[in-house]
Nucleic acid binder design. Structure first.
Length: 298
RNA sequence: GGCCUGGUACCCAAGCAGUUAGGGGACUGUCUGCAAAACAGUUUUACGCGGGUGCAAAUCCCGCCCAGGCCU
């Protein structure tokens, strides 16, 4: 099993599963630093709604990939890979243990499967143009230009169709076949398992805590700083539904309801995603994680 | 007591004699740079109850029940 690769410990789990607490505990114990894998916590000013860890809660453990982007600018998985990779390397150089912690499956996969994302940056102008076409037309266009990719793509998923066409246009080539690569690190992947019932309760508790912490004020502040309602809604969950509430599109009760149900669904989707990765060691208790890590670091 | 309107699957809601309405929600899943996103599948013989007419009724007829409205 042992090889010459540097070790990387991954802690993942659905929203509200307790990743943050566990990661602090483990990082303290094993001389670690934390690299966040969260597609919303990368944004500055989005703290309460994303459940971003506070300075105090960090207990001196260095954290990476938090607050690295302005919410005005769209952050992408490709950018995540670059920054996270760099952070991990740095932690290793400091002779600390890197902990990749988060719930954004795609971001985690860029590291754990070392996915090569086509070197084509999003072209927002082109996307706006393609956005005007019907889904059917987009699909026909793709079929004409790259019949291989057309066979595997979701023919009704506009977002993916547009991305595919974007790559073809820029590279003037068909889309390369998707493949997972050997990871650059020696991995231990730990997943926190919670029953759907427990998660429900945890999400509810967390929601009321966040509302008390003035989560709505946070959204108002972001709006004031120049973010459009549309942009705020794009972030999903708390940001989406609070924005809708502030625009009087929904009532306060509808807002809390939608955040609750939306979070439950999100948690479910995350688990559906994670289930596919057979390398994950699922645990219920922190002790189990400690044990796994001890063996792994020998 | 009389007149009217309505009672359709978990919810909303079209149909008004003869192919699966549709939406929401719920559940399950997908994943090639927006991933807290986007997308897909399932929930496809339900029409208040009892009779009748018709080859055929949620749809027409009769009676009853329930809800709401109006009248006395």
């Amino acid at each position: 099993m042992s090889n010459n690769l540097s070790k990387l410990i991954v802690i993942l789990g659905s929203t509200a599963s307790g990743k943050t607490d566990l990661s602090i505990k483990l990082a303290k114990k094993f001389n670690g630093e934390i690299v966040s894998a969260d597609s919303r916590q990368v944004y500055k000013g989005m703290n309460i709604g994303t459940g971003k860890i506070t300075k105090k809660e960090m207990k001196g453990i260095p954290h990476h990939l938090l607050d690295v982007a302005s919410p005005r600018i769209k952050f992408t998985a490709a950018r995540y890979k670059k920054l996270a990779h760099k952070a991990i390397k740095q932690i290793i150089q400091n002779n600390h243990i890197p902990f990749l912690v988060g719930g954004t499956g795609l971001y985690i996969q860029t590291i754990t499967d070392n996915i090569v994302i086509p070197q084509v940056k999003p072209d927002w102008k082109l996307r706006a143009q393609l956005e005007k076409l019907t889904t059917q037309k987009l699909f026909r266009l793709l079929k004409k230009k790259d019949s291989r990719r057309a066979k595997t793509i979701d023919s009704k998923n506009r977002r993916r169709l547009i991305r595919a066409l974007e790559i073809i246009k820029k590279t003037k080539q068909p889309i390369p076949v998707f493949k997972k690569n050997k990871p650059e690190f020696d991995l231990l992947i730990i997943g926190i398992k919670k029953s759907q019932q427990d998660l429900k309760k945890l999400i509810e508790k967390r929601l009321y805590k966040r509302l008390k912490q003035r989560m709505i004020t946070e959204v108002k502040r972001l709006k004031k700083q120049g973010l459009s309602w549309k942009r705020l809604e794009e972030f999903g969950l708390e940001y989406r539904f609070i924005a809708q509430y502030l625009q009087n599109k929904i009532t306060y009760n509808q807002m809390t309801d939608k955040i609750q149900k939306g979070s439950e669904h999100y948690a479910k989707r995350q688990m559906t995603w994670f289930k596919r990765d057979k390398r994950i060691h699922w645990i219920n208790k922190p002790k189990q994680a400690e044990k796994l890590i001890k063996t792994f670091l020998l």
